[in-house]
């Protein structure tokens, strides 16, 4: 699904070395944590997969194709195959939960007649079917993050990227969000979660990649937070 071969990413303006000779492979259907201190390179990893940045050296392949193959319209198509969840949930404040989730279908040109069924199913997956008419401000932070997950999965992407999805949440809500992400993974979606949350990584054990100063220092198939 995702293949990094000796990938180095250096931001030209600040000359920051964000990733340093990283090689790894993430297979279809895996659940992977990406852990590391702030500035370790977790978000840079996500940015490369999303093609928000290009590697300075090495090669990144997504779904078997190098990033350079995704140009123009194909970049949009690549992103449609990925759901994304961020610490700031990026929900549109003037749209209710249903419309926020449906927004993902609208921008990708899914016919409107399919929206009710697909949006309802996605909200059901995250346990928020009963709050579909609530505006983001009427939802707790945990619920907002679950709506963001529903929006990320409503298009049935084979890959879900979550960058610090529990960063703003209390422990209970964090566990809820992790459970939702695990459920999504059980449906066959590859899930990559970048996180600081040691307790979650220890509680819900999955393969864990540890980054330090841009280098991949540990790839533990059985999980565990070891910085």
């Amino acid at each position: 699904m995702i293949d990094f071969k000796h990938v180095t990413l250096e931001y030209p303006v600040t000359r920051t070395l964000a990733l340093d000779d990283v090689s790894l492979n993430i297979g279809k259907g895996e659940f992977v944590y990406l852990v590391g201190h702030s500035g370790a390179g977790k978000s840079s990893f996500m940015n490369l997969v999303l093609k928000r940045a290009l590697p300075s050296r090495g090669e990144v392949r997504v779904a078997g194709e190098p990033l350079s193959a995704y140009r123009g319209r194909r970049t949009s198509i690549l992103r449609r195959r990925m759901g994304t969840v961020f610490q700031d949930n990026l929900l549109l404040p003037h749209l209710n939960a249903f419309d926020n989730v449906a927004f993902a279908l609208r921008v990708t040109g899914v016919p409107q007649r399919e929206w009710p069924q697909r949006v309802t199913a996605a909200l059901r997956t995250v346990g928020l079917e009963h709050k579909k008419y609530a505006l983001p401000l009427q939802l707790s932070l945990g619920e907002q993050q679950r709506v963001a997950i529903a929006r990320a999965i409503v298009g049935n992407p084979p890959l879900l990227l979550a960058d610090e999805p529990t960063g703003n949440l209390d422990p209970d809500n964090s566990r809820e969000v992790l459970k939702v992400l695990q459920n999504v993974n059980l449906r066959g979606t590859t899930v990559i979660v970048a996180t600081h949350a040691r307790d979650l990584v220890e509680t819900f054990r999955h393969r864990t990649l540890t980054l330090r100063k841009g280098k991949l220092v540990r790839d533990d198939p059985y999980g565990g937070y070891a910085l």
Partner: peptide
Amino acid sequence: VMRLLGATRGF
């Protein structure tokens, strides 16, 4: 958000 969701430039 649109860009992350895969909206085309035209959209």
